[in-house]
Design a protein around this nucleic acid. Structure first.
Lengths: 212, 212
DNA sequence: CCGCGATGTATCGGACCGATACATCGCACG
DNA sequence: CGTGCGATGTATCGGTCCGATACATCGCGG
């Protein structure tokens, strides 16, 4: 999962660890708290060993004659390689059952702009199936085993069931949108401030600014 | 987390591993998929080493003279000890910040029937605070960094924000209910089948059948 | 001038998962 | 009548990720 996210992010621009974590946190804020350095750095090492990324110590320019003396601390910048991009594409193409659990789905969804439409559809439908199964499980428990459980546990299940139904509806809309060929503008009722003017989603694919 | 859940469940009845997993899955179905045996068995071993539970090989009665011959396979039954109950109570009393993340909160909530009202209130408020923070983070991203992100990532954040707002409202109702002294009957609109007749929640506390 | 919060890299132990292996039981289908 | 398959049941192993911790630099306000 982390591997996937890192390869995805580094395709937008080379970054060092701290920056990577910040961007990751911003992009995945909706699904997971914050990536731990205890996962990030070992994963970066692993990716480099595999050849998907390269790391380069940042020493801006011509520091030949002044090595010591406020020696410019670390700042290792990571850059994705051609093999890394290939690997990322391969990870998207695989899109197995792990892709449908909460975290896996969220991370893949966050990189849908780099995913072809057929795969997007496949993932959305896989996820919907999985949530529908969870929903059925919860309905069963609320129906059949209700008297065996205390009021709090029941309330928890009810809240979970509600979330499932809501997510299924969300996925339905996304799937419908996807099939109609257009981008992911689900018409949200009146959630927050209602911040929405940009109503011209670019036909998804490559749309990142490569930072000159 | 697993330690807590196991100690909580074993207070209702002694169980063997398989049964424990099933009950755990039923009780926590709303928040996590299914406990892996790769976590369950090592944890049980750890709990026994600490003296919180005891394990006893199940050999129903008087099998002195017929040891071999369809020898009755394993079935190790785990029973909580007095120290184990103490430990459980201690874990509830601690209720630190880890208690407020998704999984931690869910597990604690599932055992609210064994938690005193003051602690319930503390946990609910801590959770609300945490979700409110996440919500603010998402609002920030959707407001300030919106143009830096693609349409799919934005949609993900919007869905996450929606879930946050919904959970805060849920928690508000639970907190209000808790303060008014009564059990957790949040008035759900018209979610599923509307299965709800049992409208007399027992004043929470100990209310488990000890299975004679 | 000093501390403190942001930036930045890094490790270690522990929790938990997914795959896998293996054994028994009951029953449905040929 | 047997045989295989799904449920019950115990157990391990490698790997991913987290939380705590350590340490160093930089700029700014008091």
């Amino acid at each position: 999962m982390l591997e996937f996210a890192i390869l995805g992010l580094l395709q937008e621009a080379p970054m060092h660890g701290y920056e990577l974590r910040k961007e990751l946190t911003a992009k995945l804020g909706a699904i997971r708290a914050a990536i731990s350095y205890g996962s990030l750095y070992p994963t970066l090492r692993r990716l480099q060993a595999a050849g998907w990324i390269t790391e380069a110590a940042e020493t801006p320019a011509t520091a030949e004659e002044v090595p010591a003396l406020t020696s410019r601390r670390g700042r290792v910048v990571y850059t994705i390689t051609a093999e890394g991009k290939e690997r990322f594409a391969q990870l998207i193409a695989q899109a197995g059952p792990e892709t449908y659990d909460d975290t896996g789905f969220g991370v893949h969804f966050a990189f849908f702009a780099r995913t072809d439409q057929a795969t997007r559809l496949r993932i959305l439908e896989g996820r919907r199936r999985k949530i529908e199964e969870r929903r059925e499980g919860l309905r069963d428990v609320l129906g059949r085993a209700a008297e065996r459980l205390d009021a709090y546990t029941l309330e928890l299940q009810r809240h979970g069931l509600d979330a499932c139904e809501r997510e299924v509806r969300w996925l339905e809309e996304l799937i419908a949108n996807e099939r109609s060929g257009r981008a992911p503008t689900v018409p949200h009722p009146g959630t927050a401030g209602g911040r929405r003017e940009d109503n011209s989603p670019p036909p998804p694919g490559e749309s990142r600014k490569e930072r000159p």
